[in-house]
Amino acid sequence: MELLALFWSFVQIGLFSIGGGYAAMPLIQSQAVDIHHWLTMTQFADIMTISEMTPGPIAINSATFVGMQVAGILGSVVATVGCVLPSCIIVLTLAWAYYRFRGLSLIQGMLAGLRPAVIAMIASAGFSLIILSVYGQRTLPADLLQVHIIPALIFVIALAVLRIKKPDPIAVMASCGLAGVILLSIF
């Protein structure tokens, strides 16, 4: 039963993560953390972190990770297949329609309309990660000044560097990991 739930969850993640990249993130949080409690918020944050450091799409990485936690190798294969299945059907249908009709303007128009919602969802999931990182808990504390100084400092500096110098995110992530080890072991 758990396998079926896993499969169905990742079919939904695959079907509704529109706009690529981080669009899957809020859906994974909703399915794996909030609805099914397969992951804690910390594990979710970890898989987002690992995804950023390893090759492959976030959705596939998460499918493998969640599947493995729930039902071992078989779970990771089932979740991955579920995640890829909607893409398969829809891409092939669109490709077929493209060779047939050579026009995608309505779909592209719809996507442009969907974009603000996708950005808002990514922003919301990103906000959850910032709170977890800076306050060490899922929700904002009553006293907003109770920040964990070191992650907050790393966050601010990393963001400033990303905005100003536009480096490779992998390099930023690696530096942040190193800064974490050095600063947290000293203080």
């Binding site: 993130m25 944050a45 972190t49 922003a123 999931a125 990660l129 992650p151 790393i154 530096s175 974490g180």
Partner: peptide, 20 residues
């Protein structure tokens, strides 16, 4: 665990940058 804590701050920054 320390590296993950640092990298989590990094991921949060990367996503903030993307959303921005």
């Amino acid at each position: 665990s320390m590296a993950m804590e640092g990298m989590l701050a990094g991921v949060a920054a990367v996503i903030t940058d993307v959303v921005w």
